[in-house]
Simulated scan of single mutants.
Amino acid sequence: MKTIEIDDELYQYIAGQTQKIGESASEILRRLLLGDETAIVPANPEPVTPAVVAVVGSNIFDLINRQDLQAESSVVGRFLFILSTLARVHKKQFAKVLDIKGRNRLYFGRSAEALSEAGSSTNPKPIPNTEFWVITNSNTTRKKMMLTETAIKLGYSEQDAERIRDLL
Rank of each mutant, 00 (worst) to 15 (best):
I6L: 14
H90W: 01
D166R: 04
A161F: 05
I21Y: 06
S73V: 02
V97D: 01
N44H: 12
E149H: 06
T150M: 01
N59Q: 03
P126Q: 12
E149T: 09
Q93M: 06
S111K: 05
R163H: 06
Y156S: 06
N129Q: 14
T140I: 12
R30K: 07
K101T: 14
T140F: 01
Q19N: 10
L168A: 04
V75M: 03
L86K: 02
I6S: 11
E162A: 14
P47G: 03
L167P: 01
N137P: 09
S120P: 14
D99Q: 13
S84C: 04
F61K: 09
V53T: 15
G102K: 01
S58D: 02
V89K: 01
E46V: 13
R103I: 10
K101M: 07
V52K: 14
E23D: 02
L98K: 07
S26R: 06
N123W: 07
A51C: 11
Q93K: 15
V41Q: 07
L80H: 05
T136E: 11
V76R: 13
K91H: 11
Q159M: 12
A71P: 01
E46H: 10
R66N: 13
F108I: 03
A112P: 04
V41Y: 00
P47T: 06
A15H: 06
S58R: 00
L80G: 10
E113I: 13
P47S: 08
I28A: 05
I60F: 05
G35V: 04
Q12A: 13
A15N: 09
A43D: 15
S74Y: 04
E9C: 06
H90K: 12
V55Q: 05
G119A: 15
G109A: 11
Q93A: 12
R103Y: 06
K125P: 02
K144W: 01
L29R: 02
V48L: 11
R165S: 15
I152L: 15
V52G: 08
L80E: 07
G22C: 05
Q67S: 08
L154I: 06
V89W: 00
V134S: 05
P50L: 14
E27G: 11
S121K: 12
I152E: 10
P45R: 00
G57A: 07
T150K: 03
D160I: 07
S74I: 02
E46S: 10
Q67G: 08
Q17A: 14
A71W: 00
P50Q: 13
I164A: 02
T18E: 09
A95H: 13
